[in-house]
Design a binder for these strands. Structure first.
Lengths: 126, 126
DNA sequence: TATTTTTGATTACAAATGTAATACATTAAA
DNA sequence: TTTAATGTATTACATTTGTAATCAAAAATA
């Protein structure tokens, strides 16, 4: 498995915009983020550059405008974050982590049923 | 809810030792960590100092030896980390997070049953 | 054509983090 | 009592991160 770039908290915001839709120009990304953040557009440009340097984003140049797109998938980055939490906080013990999530947070009945279904299937496949 | 100190990756290692057993002297902590890390004892002293400055650890002085103990509970720090992941990566959507954890990781049949039980109980309590 | 505007590139700067080294004070040993 | 060892406090230094400002080049405009 290729080694993923480490994506910081602020960078995650930017990546999420591009995972949602890409390629986008810097200005389009700035517009998207204007809804969720108070960042100066300069700040966003900086984050875009850092993400390019980390090989998390690629560009496609059209004249002097860049179109940015992800070079890593959201799912692989998400997995890396999940594993990081699991290991750092729970020493890799999945059950306690899940139990804590389940007990604390609110889930709809539908969601509960979906999760039960996943567990059923896992139980059977053994 | 009191505002928790932000505990870094390396600091988590130290805190886990003390959550497991406390109070401990710096040397005892160093000994514990010798098993899991390659850190220089100086490094560990630095981390202990930073954690004290963050009010994550307190000390009880005995002569010139300090006995360190946690000022924040593991559970509240763990919750903070869970929430951070949930929000940063999943925009707060719990079900997809849990589904991803469940699908990817390996759980024993017993663990699966325990989780099903938790889900049952949650379903009922609505 | 000279000037302003726009877009990306480079530089800035403080705080946090990883990873120690050095300094200082006190106790134990010679 | 002087010296060495031990424990804590202070200082160090590079990298990452948050948050921009400035610079340079190209395009649009006067």
């Amino acid at each position: 498995m290729k080694d993923l770039p480490k994506i910081s908290e602020a960078e995650w915001q930017v990546m999420k915009v591009l995972w949602d839709k890409s390629p986008l120009t810097a200005n389009e990304i700035v517009d998207q983020l204007a809804n969720n953040t108070e960042w100066n557009p300069r700040t966003i440009k900086t984050l875009l550059n850092r993400l390019m340097n980390k090989n998390a984003l690629g560009i496609q140049q059209d004249g002097r405008v860049y179109w940015y797109y992800p070079l890593v998938s959201k799912e692989e980055c998400a997995r890396s974050e999940r594993e990081s939490l699991l290991k750092r906080v729970y020493n890799g013990a999945l059950q306690p982590l899940l139990a804590a999530f389940l007990e604390e947070q609110k889930l709809s009945n539908e969601e509960i049923d979906e999760l039960k279904q996943i567990l059923e299937d896992k139980g059977k496949s053994k």
